[in-house]
């Protein structure tokens, strides 16, 4: 079984995110970045499947794929330290400012160049843009079924089975391989890289591809080719300082009074 896990290098969620004033894109260089936390669950899911399949990690490979600036190599490194076999980094200056549609195009072409994986895994969303649409777009481009937001994942022969916990029901979704699966943060507990894993990662193959390597024209991606445009952005004004009381036996009563005054009761 060949598994490709799509991962993203994102600005640290604890950092103050902002925009580049010149072109209204996310400022990805001014802040510290890291492997998106939600992608760790996808990597872990891939490693677990490879370990459990016949032949184990010797015959079942996990390749991580990312699209991003030079520093995105850090995300690949972390995935290799966790146990992934190989990494592919698509990096090209023309990619700057790409929207979700263009990102899915680059990922789709890279997946085709890697080969024909049995399974493509992703996290549920990135922790920066957090649109959560790239998995569906990628599945559409590759003509694959998508089974998303898996809280449980099993592969049985040529079939993938997931459990998704929805608002009204917990459902089982089944698809034939090849398929695209996105996983939630409920599916597993991602492993920390071991010392052995960190040493082994240094010898693992990482390929860096440009748009030309994928047969993509620079004009088909990036900010100028985006299908949407950020017209303006404004920093949200800080909320006006509210009234804060310390409970001295009547805190609940005061709270109820606030609710009555503001017509919530």
């Amino acid at each position: 079984m060949n598994i490709v896990v799509c991962i993203k290098y994102v600005p640290d969620a604890q950092a103050e995110l902002t925009f580049n004033a010149s072109d209204n894109t996310t400022d990805r260089l001014g802040v510290e970045g890291l492997l998106s936390e939600l992608d760790e669950y996808a990597i872990e899911a891939g490693l677990k499947l490879a370990e459990a399949a016949a032949g184990g990690v010797a015959e079942n490979t996990v390749t991580v794929l990312t699209v991003g600036p030079d520093k995105a190599a850090d995300a690949i490194k972390k995935a290799l330290q966790m146990g992934a076999h190989a990494g592919v980094h698509v990096s090209d200056e023309a990619i700057h400012g790409s929207d979700a549609a263009a990102t899915s195009l680059i990922l789709a072409e890279a997946v085709k160049k890697i080969g024909s994986p049995d399974l493509i895994l992703t996290g549920m969303a990135s922790t920066d843009g957090s649109m959560g649409v790239v998995p569906a777009m990628l599945a559409e481009r590759l003509g694959l079924p998508q089974v998303t937001l898996a809280a449980e994942l099993t592969v049985d022969g040529g079939t993938v089975i997931i459990r998704r916990d929805g608002d009204t029901a917990s459902v089982t979704i089944t698809a034939s391989l090849p398929a695209l699966v996105s996983v939630t943060d409920q599916i597993n507990e991602p492993r920390y890289p071991s010392f052995k894993g960190i040493m082994a990662a240094k010898k693992k193959p990482v390929e860096t591809w440009s748009l030309a390597d994928l047969g993509l024209d620079a004009g088909s991606v990036g900010l100028a080719a985006a299908w949407t445009k950020v017209e303006s952005f404004t920093k949200r004004p800080p909320r006006a300082k509210g009234q804060i009381v310390t409970d001295e036996g009547d805190g609940g009563t005061q709270l109820a009074e606030f609710l009555t005054t503001h017509k919530f009761v």
Partner: peptide
């Protein structure tokens, strides 16, 4: 933290 105005161009 931010409010964004956007349009679809395609």
């Amino acid at each position: 933290g931010y409010t964004v105005q956007a349009t679809v161009t395609k």
